[in-house]
C-alpha cells in the first residue's frame, strides 16, 4: 500500500485516496475547432509510460480535493505531490534529488 502525501492533509494511507489517471490533460480550449482525432487524443490516448508519471489523485476520504503526484511506474515510488493547477515539477531534477 502506498503512503501518499496529500498537499493539504499530509501523509495518509493509499486507502484514503482514489486514483484519477494521467494528469495535465487539458480539455480543448475551443472544442468546436478540433476534429475526431483531436477528441480521440483528449479522451482516450494516454502516455502510459514505463517510468515517471504525472497523475491525479483525489483524497476521497479526507479533504476530498484533487491533487497531482509524480510516481515511477516500475518502483511505484512517489517523489512529489503538488496542488492541482500548479506547474508540473521538472522530472530530471526530481530524479537527481531521488538519487541523492
Amino acid at each position: 500500500m502506498l503512503l501518499i502525501k496529500c498537499p493539504h492533509c499530509g501523509e495518509r494511507a493509499e486507502l484514503e485516496f482514489r486514483y484519477g489517471g494521467e494528469a495535465h490533460i487539458a480539455r480543448p480550449a475551443d472544442p468546436g475547432a478540433i476534429d475526431d482525432s483531436g477528441w480521440a487524443d483528449f479522451l482516450y490516448m494516454r502516455s502510459n509510460p514505463k517510468g515517471w508519471h504525472a497523475e491525479r489523485w483525489r483524497h476521497e476520504f479526507g479533504c476530498g480535493r484533487f491533487f497531482n503526484a509524480i510516481r515511477h511506474t516500475v518502483s511505484d515510488r512517489i517523489v512529489a505531490t503538488y496542488r492541482s493547477g500548479d506547474k508540473r515539477p521538472d522530472i530530471a531534477s526530481l530524479e537527481a534529488a531521488a538519487k541523492r
Binding site: M1, L15, N48, E55, V74, D76
Partner: peptide
C-alpha cells in the same frame, strides 16, 4: 490495483 504500474506485484490490501 488502483493505479497504473509496471511493477508486476501489486498491493496486499
Amino acid at each position: 490495483d488502483a493505479y497504473t504500474s509496471y511493477s508486476q506485484t501489486g498491493a496486499l490490501h
